Computed example of a mutant assay.
Amino acid sequence: VISTFSGEQCTFGTANSNDVWRSFIDSTEAEPCFFIPAFFFNNPSTLEDYTVMDGGFNWNAAWPAGDFDVNFDPDESWIRPLGGRAYMAGVSPWFFTHYSPDSYNKNFIYLCDNWMFAQHWELLIANRDRIVMVQGMTWNDWGESHHLGPLIQDEKEPESQAWVDGFDHTAWLDLFAYYAQAFKTGDYPAIGRDRIFLCLYPTNTNANDSLGRPANWQWTCDFLWAVVLLTDPATVMLQCGPNQGSWDVPSGLSKLKLPLTVNCSVTASVRRADGSGMDFSPAGFTFSTTPPSYNFNAFVAASP
């Protein structure tokens, strides 16, 4: 499988980029390949002209393009003009970048509220018969905050430390694996033990930050977002300072949220009538109403 990030404008003196890529793919005949690039087209119908593509990958479908929840429409807009060729979907947990005009000049968010990562996975699983594969996006773009997994110190983009350092996203990997198994098989896997996955923006929008608020900041709300996997029904409690909530939750997967209004540290618990359950107080998992700078990266934690 060969994919790309962009490349639709590469012509190298030929009539069009389809011919360029055809020449490249033909040169790999000794090693047959399946070409499924992430080209960027304003009009998806252009896909009909790119006969070199064995399939397509709509990179930007991984996030909502406006002030609305993630949906399957961007994927659908590519599946139709591909005309039966393969479609690879992308799924991403987050997006925030805060570079100044003196560096990469990128300062914006996409809407990741409302359990976007989980909701998108569930959409893809519901449409799995129309998708040949799913790509996790990404494993190493720390500067845009959509890394899945750990930080690798020597590979982080320069000038991103202010919103990247300390924001390891390894806690998302087990949730990713849960959904990936459901996508592969069509059945959600059995839950072997109670788990709580938490994420939040660590700050609100009142920072004394010379760079200014990121574009689209007004789309988001100050909430703690929780995805809970339970072996049996239980009462789940979330708390951050004076804000607390308690829910009677069935077995399986549930999504909960808690408003954040003051400086506070997060705790969570699971309780059952027979005394079983757990307490979860992730270290450093805090929310601040008076941050020194804007940080809409995701602080993520998962119970053992």
Results as ranks from 00 to 15, higher is better:
Leu253Glu: 11
Pro214Ser: 04
Cys199Gly: 06
Asn206Gly: 11
Val262Lys: 09
Thr203Ala: 14
Gly186Ile: 05
Asn204Tyr: 04
Pro233Glu: 06
Cys221Lys: 14
Ser210His: 15
Ser254Gly: 11
Pro189Ala: 10
Thr231Phe: 01
Pro189Gly: 09
Gln239Cys: 03
Tyr188Trp: 15
Asn208Phe: 10
Thr261Gln: 12
Asn263Ile: 04
Val266His: 03
Phe223Ser: 03
Leu200Pro: 00
Ser251Asp: 15
Pro233Ala: 10
Leu198His: 06
Ala226His: 00
Val228Trp: 00
Arg213Ala: 15
Leu198Ile: 05
Leu198Lys: 03
Gln244Ser: 15
Thr220Met: 08
Ala234Ile: 03
Trp225Glu: 10
Pro202Ile: 07
Asp209Gly: 09
Asp222Tyr: 01
Pro233Gly: 04
Thr185Ile: 09
Arg195Thr: 08
Trp217Gly: 02
Leu200Ser: 00
Pro214Met: 07
Gly252Thr: 11
Leu200Lys: 09
Pro259Ile: 05
Trp247Ala: 09
Trp219Ile: 02
Ser246Cys: 11
Ala207Val: 05
Asp232His: 12
Ser265Pro: 04
Asn208Met: 14
Ala180Ile: 03
Ala190Gly: 12
Thr267Arg: 13
Cys221Phe: 13
Ile196Pro: 01
Val266Gly: 02
Leu256Cys: 12
Ser210Tyr: 12
Leu253Asp: 06
Asn204Cys: 12
Thr235Glu: 13
Pro259Ala: 09
Cys199Glu: 15
Pro242Cys: 00
Ser265Gln: 14
Leu253Pro: 06
Met237Trp: 01
Gly192Asp: 14
Asp232Cys: 05
Ile196Ser: 06
Ala226Glu: 00
